[in-house]
């Protein structure tokens, strides 16, 4: 691999700008049996909560046209177990280690962030955008004021570079992004899933126990792309883009729209090799277009 894909986000150097999205790659254990995980730029962990959680009951998945709804509900082993068992494992895999932290209250977030100071991670991704847990999660990301407050609190209590992951389920994502930047975020990642719904017409009931669920996959790509573009037009900090990226062309579009790196989620489910193919494709694109580094196309639109 050449230097053409070397990427720096939040002051951290990545082999390439392709990161496994939170909740779609576990802690890297399963996919490391299938693909050469060490080639990835980074891995964002499953969303962690302070005490851990069994997640939602009832049905958790439904495929929809060119997308999928999920209602996993942040099933995770808790920050403690992550610090002890999963972070050291992720470190050995090679890619940059990102811990994704969710929460139910301000105190949860602060305590979780403090515990993560003991973990050997590179970036803390603050998830204020999970639509699948009832009190909190996304609630913090919906209003600029509360997003700023939680960002500030976590920033004050964390030693790690802070990436704040935004929800697209807002009136103005630019306002939320600006509020987080001002509160001390070192970068913004977007988007988390769009709030959706499905009804089982035979049973005459909502498919998911929580009624609403999160939509991801190619169906959301054009909206996610537009949001990344809008946000990067207004903030100075790094933007990490995602939402329905399936191949090299999609990844390039997010980079051109203003992302410094991309995350890939649902497409890995469809084909575990997706991210490796994107990395090869980006390398090839740099050759064909005589780029010294992939960052030369970032934000050109």
């Amino acid at each position: 691999m050449s230097e053409k894909l070397l990427t720096t986000i939040l002051g951290v150097e990545l082999k390439n700008p392709v990161i496994a999205a939170s909740g779609t790659f576990g802690f890297g254990r399963e996919y490391s049996e299938l693909i050469d995980v060490s080639r990835l730029g980074g891995i964002s962990s499953k969303g962690l909560t302070l005490k851990g959680s069994l997640g939602n009951s009832g049905r958790r998945l439904l495929e929809t046209p060119a997308g999928m709804l999920n209602s996993i509900g942040l099933e995770n082993p808790g920050v403690d177990t992550f610090v002890r068992d999963e972070a050291p494992y992720m470190r050995e895999l090679g890619p940059v280690v990102i811990a994704n932290l969710g929460g139910h209250s301000e105190q949860d977030y602060v305590e979780g962030a403090k515990m993560l100071n003991h973990a050997d991670i590179d970036i803390l991704e603050l998830n204020i955008s999970c639509p699948n847990v009832k009190e909190g999660g996304m609630a913090f990301g919906l209003i600029p004021e509360s997003a700023a407050k939680i960002t500030k609190l976590v920033k004050e209590n964390s030693r790690h570079p802070l990436l704040v992951k935004l929800s697209p389920n807002v009136t103005s994502i630019v306002e939320v992004a600006l509020a987080c930047e001002e509160a001390g975020a070192n970068g913004i990642s977007l988007v988390n899933t769009f709030l959706g719904m499905a009804i089982d017409v035979e049973k005459k009931e909502a498919v998911f126990e929580n009624v609403y669920a999160g939509l991801s996959g190619p169906a959301i790509r054009p909206i996610a792309l537009r949001m990344v573009h809008e946000v990067k037009k207004h903030v100075k900090i790094d933007v990490v883009g995602m939402g329905g990226i399936m191949n090299t062309i999609d990844a390039l579009a997010f980079l051109m729209a203003g992302a410094s790196a991309v995350q890939v989620g649902s497409a890995t489910f469809a084909n575990p090799e997706t991210m490796l193919k994107i990395i090869d494709g980006l390398e090839e694109y740099c050759q064909l277009h005589n780029l010294n580094n992939i960052s030369e196309i970032c934000g050109i639109i």
Binding site: R29, G55, R59, R60, L61, E63, I72, E75
Partner: peptide, 16 residues
């Protein structure tokens, strides 16, 4: 169960 990844990563197919 309804599956997305099939490999144990998404936690979408769990049973109790």
């Amino acid at each position: 169960s309804h599956m997305a990844c099939g490999v144990g990563a998404c936690l979408g197919c769990t049973c109790k």
